[in-house]
Design a binder for these strands. Sequence first.
DNA 1: TGAAATATACCCCCTGAAGGGTTAGTTGGT
DNA 2: ACCAACTAACCCTTCAGGGGGTATATTTCA
Lengths: 210, 210
Amino acid sequence: MQDQEIAKIVIIEDDETIREGYTYLINHTSPYRVVNSYPSFDAAKSKIAKDNPDVIILDIQLPGTSGIEALPLLKKLLPQTFIIMLTVYETEQIILDALANGASGYFTKNSASAKVIEAIKEVLQGGGPMSPDVAKTVIMSLQKNPDSPLTKRETQILGLINKGKDRSQIANELFIEVETVKTHIKNIYMKLNVNSKADAITVAKSNKLI
Amino acid sequence: MQDQEIAKIVIIEDDETIREGYTYLINHTSPYRVVNSYPSFDAAKSKIAKDNPDVIILDIQLPGTSGIEALPLLKKLLPQTFIIMLTVYETEQIILDALANGASGYFTKNSASAKVIEAIKEVLQGGGPMSPDVAKTVIMSLQKNPDSPLTKRETQILGLINKGKDRSQIANELFIEVETVKTHIKNIYMKLNVNSKADAITVAKSNKLI
DNA sequence: TGAAATATACCCCCTGAAGGGTTAGTTGGT
DNA sequence: ACCAACTAACCCTTCAGGGGGTATATTTCA
């Protein structure tokens, strides 16, 4: 979109009240225009390309194709369009899935309306707006366990195992002998109470050790 | 901290001008109090426990112990304290490392001063404040490549390989034969132009296919 | 409807990576 | 002076991983 043009918004949301509420809000209290809105992705898919929106406000809980499933499809139809999720759902997995599948921002519906308009502004400027609760969830998912039973070296080696490296590759990378790597791995397995690479990775990830 | 108490802030930042600027700003335009500030973690470590701050504003570029290195140490000294990174650095790796090591929020120094006070408020309320540029970086790091050359099944299997599962475990999980898994893996290796698990994971991750 | 893409399944071969057990020297911090 | 961490080496066995080739349902889409 060109700077001098008015940014075009499309809303995909099954609740009519919410849909019309945001439409009114955006049209009357922001410099943006809601050019169209749809109650589902299935209703939108054949027509949204012509709308050519700059930003799509997308709900997750939609009849038919879910918002998560719709994300890659919308991205394919409109590669340049920013998509902001606006939804009541906020489990860690759903949020991460939405972001992994191409959402540019994520807001929960209990956010102040003004924040949503701010979010539109931010994505248009290249930022990645998230409401504080969503941001918190994202940060938590990245956080490591500070009370790891593993030593630095063990954590490092487990990280390399997680990258798919084998013993000799790890040895080369750390400038130590393969036998030393073996010893470390044995100690890791003991501490984590496992006896295979796969189990070690599973336990390590679920305890956020790596 | 109790709600009725005034939240205590400590600033660790080597630039005196910035340190005093934020101290003044917070003391005069917010309900919070800067109870102490230090030019380095090394200067802070023996005394900060007595300050018992609710929030620490932490720079990354510090003389001696870096902000990233200081994070787990501060977490150990003050497990309940929120730490907000406030720094000029914003490479993807540094941001992710900071968050992985226990930062509750992350702001770049070009953010408006008022935003920093807002951030303090948000962490105290349990949110995870990030400036838009930082949030953008975090989201980008989570985003998958929509133009993957792999099929759904191949992506799925590569994901399981990434979890450390071996062929037979994958076969069990997907209710298909081990030989079928082998075929898929061969096709994955061809498409990614690799010939080992480790290389496949490396290529897949660097191209954000998984 | 018919070609292309995808998913499924099986055969052979061979190397060495993976896991278990044990012992022991060196270093760094309190 | 001690303990934890890091390092290194030797023993052993098994089977997972990777290379090669081939065949055939099933699905998808033009």
